[in-house]
Amino acid sequence: MKAPLDYVLHLADNSLILGQRNAEWCGHGPILEEDIALANISLDLIGQARLLYQYAAELKGGGATEDKLAYLRGSREFRNYTLLELPHSGPLSGYARADRDYATTIVRNFFFSALMVLYWEALLQSKDEQLAAIAEKSIKEVRYHLRHARDWLVKLGDGTEASHARMRSALEHLMPYTKEFWVSSPAESQAVANGTGVDVASLRSQWDAIVNDGLNEATLIRPQDTSGYVTQGKEGVHSEHLDYVLAEMQSLARQYPNATW
């Protein structure tokens, strides 16, 4: 059984875009050890993306390759969660370091890795053997990502007054974007229907438990779930930020087609 192409692209794009975002810290980490940690996490994510794109290219056929999928699609064709394309600056821009706020980075990685430890675990049962194999490799990596993000969540949340304020602000900024996790896209519904995908809504109570437990230890109060706009990045409707990510990430491949090095 094969997963729908759009579903595989959704997973691949999630990993690639967050990997690209986290890689922006390379050379700019708050301390050397964190610089290396974030680069490691990025490389894990980009490695996952490669496996998924290779599989997507196989499903797509017609000369598709992992590079073409990553570098030659426009933002409307990307299927990642909107959460993952946002810049590392929260609503504190102008007060915190405007371009990179570590609290935003940590809260996002915490939300996403808390989801993915459950997601990959569930995908081990996928009827698509290829996806199940990718899940088996990815689950170990993402367990470490969660451990890293949760550790910092607690340290910064239960840290100084300033670090707590920045974490709270990042939390309030990013929490609404997690609503996108729970609303099925057509690709997700198809994947669930043919037994290759995960019914993400069924992971929600476990995700809540991981998140609440972390926030509790970090002395952070979870913002009320609101009934506002639900982002639809996974259906190709993105924020303006994705175009900037793609412009940087794809510039070389677009300017020098078929470049090798």
Binding site: L32, E33, E34, H148, D151, K155
Partner: peptide
């Protein structure tokens, strides 16, 4: 944290 960082470094 020292263990985690040692793992990464």
């Amino acid at each position: 944290q020292a263990l985690d960082m040692a793992r990464d470094v």
